[in-house]
Design a protein around this nucleic acid. Structure first.
Length: 638
DNA sequence: GGAGGTCTAAACATTC
DNA sequence: GGAATGTTTAGACCTC
């Protein structure tokens, strides 16, 4: 609804594109503001003919004009403070943000509505708006030269947001096959993005601005308390320049965004807070620098000299991870540049710039649902490469079951992608029975109450945080239906256990590599396989770099790799004898290697004995050799 | 086409 | 009484 209107707005205002071209043509920032496309075009036109003084004058006029519009819209927005809409005047809600808000419209819906070229144009227009806002902000800042600490915050947010949008744009283009990147070029220079103003120029501009007005001085002069950052002044505060939707710019270019839909109430970012700041210290993984207040934190976060600090250092690390990912993908014959845009979401670039693992961002392992689960803008999320092929198939029962048919061990899948499933609204490619069993087996005593099973589902999978009636009913149905689930009266009530023997009985080896399965596999990789949830996840969630070994929560991963190896051994002919990272495939599968390439490499998995429950014909409550309780990632998953 | 598996939905009973 | 839990049935879809 909001998106629709926003899209309408965009489409009806060619000014956006004008603004883009304007900005891209003149990186010195002579763009128009929202709705000021004509001015932007004029500015571009004038840029080649006018003197610097005249150009500056023109820019001032443009900025003033946009400022008037801004204030007008601001006033409009304030007129109805009670409603959420009222709190988010149009100018404050970048269309891109709205579009990517899952509660508004899913990317799939967007794709259904719009053709790829239209989507591309729309994304470009989003960028245009963002660029206009950013340029406008910079211009305003240049004009006013007012030392405002929160201005700088806002600009930094704008910069980061713009980067995200650009990368999101790139991601979408890739997804649509409009852009193909050669392997190893996971992180495309922002400068290369079409019709985009060079962010580095903006960064440079910003540096110049901040050089002229040191932040500390700004803060001191105005006495701004960044920790409260209420930004109710009439000047361009952070809250006014940046979108009202909680948008947490991360220094690595990643951004998480709170959307009003899920958990917005409980996780709403309060002004003056920062997802990377808490308890007086920087929460950046490995940093933990003490900061007196948010202002100091932000300054340390943002003003770090080039080449050092959070931003650059981690970018380098992430770049390496990206290269590693590319190598892994190449090893698995996943061709990132293969022109199958819709069918190869796995090829999405692993952006070194952005794909900092959520778990890394929040090393505490505690739930941060709104930041990740609903974060629409995390461009170039890494998820797809971590998600095994089976994950891509979760369009209905067929593809859901592909995972089992192709012998993707649920434990490994969850180990590798548990962050993804936890945050993305993607249906896990496992049957209810498998999931229930996994939940039970993850517990120390191999038994769970129904409610605990529920909790496991919701804890592990964002997908099961909605439609509770449906899947809970299914869970109960499965518990009752399958003989493998045994209800035991316990001191604490009725608990459910798994009769592994029964479970194995009901799962005869199916993996035959039959043409039918192969065909399904292939079709699963087709355009249709990009089901709504997955696409939504692509756009909505912040994919962690789970495929990267360094990005995986080691404890949880190892624990989960421990648990449930029977999923592998029960249906698959064990691990590669050569101990390689190749996916576990039956000999028949190896005869069709091309079709199963996207099974996740599971080095750790393969390196471990696969005997845990493979040969167990015993009840799960028995095995003592599976003393895995202490490793169970319960805390990590919560 | 049938068997088996899975999912969704629903109704109903029991327990808390 | 209501919610949670547990059982059962039915229909649909899919794979083999």
């Amino acid at each position: 609804m909001m998106v629709e209107s926003a899209s309408e707005t965009i489409r009806s205002t060619p000014s956006a594109q004008n603004g883009v071209s304007s900005l891209s043509n003149q990186p010195d920032g002579g763009g128009g503001g929202p709705g000021g496309g004509r001015d932007g075009a004029a500015g571009a036109e004038a840029n080649g003919e006018m003197s610097p003084v005249e150009l500056l004058h023109l820019q001032q006029q443009q900025a003033l004009q946009v400022a008037r519009q801004f204030l007008l819209q601001q006033a409009t927005g304030l007129s109805s403070p009670s409603s959420n809409e009222g709190k988010q005047p149009a100018v404050q809600v970048p269309v891109s943000v709205a579009m990517m808000s899952p509660q508004m419209i899913t990317p799939q819906q967007m794709q259904q509505i719009l053709s790829p070229p239209q989507l591309q144009a729309l994304l470009q227009q989003q960028q245009a708006i963002m660029l206009q806002q950013l340029a406008f902000g910079i211009l305003s800042f240049l004009l006013s030269r007012q030392p405002l600490g929160n201005k700088q915050l806002a600009f930094q947010q704008q910069l980061l947001q713009m980067q995200q949008l650009q990368q999101q744009h790139l991601l979408n283009l890739q997804r649509q096959g409009l852009v193909s990147l050669p392997p190893g070029q996971g992180s495309v220079p922002l400068q290369s993005l079409p019709q985009a103003v060079c962010p580095s120029d903006l960064q440079q501009l910003w540096k110049e601005v901040t050089a002229a007005q040191p932040v500390e001085d700004s803060i001191k002069q105005e006495g701004l308390d960044l920790t409260t950052n209420t930004s109710n002044s009439t000047s361009f505060s952070a809250a006014k320049v940046s979108p009202p939707i909680s948008h947490h710019p991360l220094p690595n270019g990643q951004s998480t965004m709170h959307t009003p839909r899920r958990d917005s109430s409980s996780h709403e970012e309060t002004p003056g807070s920062h997802p990377l700041y808490g308890h007086g210290e920087c929460k950046w993984p490995g940093c933990e620098t003490l900061c007196e207040d948010l202002g100091q934190f932000v300054w340390g976060l943002m003003a770090a000299p080039p080449g050092c600090g959070h931003l650059c250092g981690d970018l380098g690390t992430l770049a390496k991870e990206s290269e590693r990912l590319q190598a892994m993908m190449a090893h698995l014959h996943m061709r990132p540049s293969e022109p199958k845009p819709f069918s190869q979401p796995l090829n999405l670039v692993s952006s070194a710039t952005l794909s900092k693992s959520t778990s890394d961002t929040f090393p505490d392992g505690l739930p941060h649902p709104p930041t990740s689960a609903t974060a629409p803008i995390t461009p170039l999320r890494q998820g797809p490469s971590v998600i095994s092929s089976s994950t891509l198939h979760n369009v209905g029962p067929i593809r859901r079951r592909n995972s089992e048919k192709f012998c993707t061990p649920i434990s490994s899948e969850l180990a590798q992608n548990h962050e993804f499933y936890k945050n993305a609204d993607v249906r896990p490619p496992f049957t209810y029975a498998s999931l229930i069993r996994q939940a039970i087996l993850e517990t120390p005593d191999r038994q769970l109450t129904l409610n605990e099973i529920y909790n496991w589902f919701t804890r592990m999978f964002a997908y099961f945080r909605r439609n509770t009636a449906t899947w809970k009913n299914a869970v109960r149905h499965n518990l009752s239906l399958h003989k493998c689930f045994v209800r035991v009266e316990n001191v604490k009530g009725a608990v459910w256990t798994v009769d592994e023997h029964e479970y194995q009985k009901r799962r005869p080896p199916k993996m035959t590599g039959s043409p039918t399965l192969v065909k399904n596999m292939i079709s699963g990789l087709g355009y249709g396989a990009l089901n709504a949830s997955y696409q939504a996840a692509l756009a909505e969630s912040s994919f962690p770099l789970l495929n990267s070994p360094t990005m995986i929560n080691t404890s949880s991963a190892s624990a989960m790799l421990h648990v449930g190896h029977d999923d592998v051994s029960s249906t698959v002919e064990q691990v590669n004898s050569n101990g390689s990272n190749s996916p576990r495939l039956s000999p028949q599968q190896y005869s069709h290697p091309v079709h199963v390439k996207e099974e996740p490499a599971e080095a750790e998995d393969d390196s471990r004995p696969v005997s845990l429950m493979a040969t167990t014909n015993q009840n799960v409550t028995i095995p003592d050799d599976r003393d895995l309780e202490e490793e169970l990632p319960v805390e990590d998953l919560s």
